[in-house]
Amino acid sequence: MAPRRCPCGTGLPYAECCGRLHDGTATAGTAEQLMRSRFSAFAVGDPAYLLRTWHSRTRPAALDLDPRVRWTALEVLATTGGGLLAAEGTVEFRAHSVVDRTAGSQHEDSRFVREDGGWRYLDGVALP
Rank of each mutant, 00 (worst) to 15 (best):
A78F: 15
M35W: 05
G29C: 08
D46Y: 00
F112A: 06
D116H: 02
L50V: 05
C17M: 00
V44N: 12
E16T: 02
S56A: 10
L127Q: 10
D66L: 02
A48W: 01
C18S: 02
A48D: 15
A61Y: 03
R68D: 06
H96I: 11
E88C: 00
A86H: 11
G11W: 08
G117C: 09
V76G: 01
R38P: 02
P13M: 00
P128Q: 12
A31V: 12
V98H: 04
A41T: 10
E16H: 03
L85Q: 14
D116T: 02
G104S: 03
E32Y: 00
G45P: 04
M1H: 12
R101V: 05
E92W: 00
L50E: 09
L127P: 13
V91A: 09
V69S: 03
L65I: 06
E115Q: 14
F42M: 13
M35R: 01
D109P: 00
D23Y: 04
A126G: 02
Y121W: 10
E108D: 07
D64M: 06
R59N: 05
Y49A: 05
S110H: 08
G124L: 15
E16C: 00
P13C: 04
L127I: 11
R70Q: 14
V125I: 14
V91Q: 13
H55V: 08
L51G: 09
T79Y: 04
L77D: 14
A103V: 13
L127A: 11
G45M: 12
V91I: 05
C8F: 04
C8L: 04
D64G: 14
E16R: 04
Y121N: 01
V125C: 08
A2V: 14
Q106M: 05
V76Q: 04
V76S: 07
L12R: 02
L127H: 08
R38T: 03
D23I: 00
L65T: 03
R38D: 10
G29D: 14
C18K: 06
F93R: 01
C18R: 11
D64L: 15
L84E: 10
H107L: 13
G124K: 13
E108L: 01
P67W: 08
R68Y: 07
L74A: 01
D23H: 08
G45Q: 07
R52H: 14
T30D: 08
G19L: 03
T10F: 07
C8W: 07
G118V: 14
A2G: 09
A43N: 10
E75H: 08
R5A: 05
A48P: 06
R101S: 11
A31Y: 07
G83Y: 12
T27V: 15
V69G: 00
G24A: 03
R68P: 00
W71Q: 05
L63T: 13
T72Q: 10
P128E: 15
T30S: 07
Q106C: 09
S110N: 12
